[in-house]
Design a binder for these strands. Structure first.
Lengths: 91, 91
DNA sequence: ATGGACTTGTCAGATTTTGGCTAATTTAAT
DNA sequence: ATTAAATTAGCCAAAATCTGACAAGTCCAT
């Protein structure tokens, strides 16, 4: 998963533990673990908080977060590419 | 909405009434009306049935249906374009 | 002003999502 | 190999969302 992969990188760079970030986000550790692995999706607010904690651009993480959701939506569809292109046109 | 616009066109081309299509899909007319206007989203099965009824490529309607969902997901996000591009890369 | 087509609003029931708990597994160090 | 810490898996109830149906409304032509 897009966001999960990135925040895992960031967490390891800064040598933080899942439970520390979980505490910051006020969720439990298993939940944070799931977000990192993309098993659960973070909420917008949590992504923003993570950007602050890691001191990276909010936009970067929000973009990955959104991309992950789009990917989940289209991944099993034969017409995924075409659909994406159509949306891209109209943005 | 992508799909709604298209099935309205098709319905008018063939001079059919909403209630006729609603009957085919086994839903009530208000529901069909909402699907056409994009107020409710059709389910996959209904889209396929509609393609058969209108005698158009299943793929065409499924693509529009998917595009509509993607659009709903990203439309209010500042990072929509970038996110879409990232997904496009990885398909 | 009646009738037919379509739309709007509402609502309970069904389905999904969510958060947190416990327990299992993996990892790292001694 | 044993322990302790970190991470993951599985489960369950509460909350939120989605669904289908109905009643009532508008709009338009006759």
């Amino acid at each position: 998963m897009y966001l999960g992969k990135r925040i895992k990188e960031l967490r390891e760079e800064k040598a933080l533990l899942q439970r520390q970030l979980a505490a910051e986000l006020e969720i439990d550790t298993p939940m944070y673990s799931k977000i990192e692995r993309g098993e659960r999706k973070a909420k917008r607010e949590q992504v923003i908080k993570l950007a602050k904690l890691f001191q990276v651009e909010e936009k970067e993480l929000l973009m990955l977060w959104l991309a992950g959701q789009v990917y989940e939506l289209v991944k099993d569809e034969e017409v995924a590419k075409e659909a994406i292109k159509v949306v891209e046109q109209n943005l």
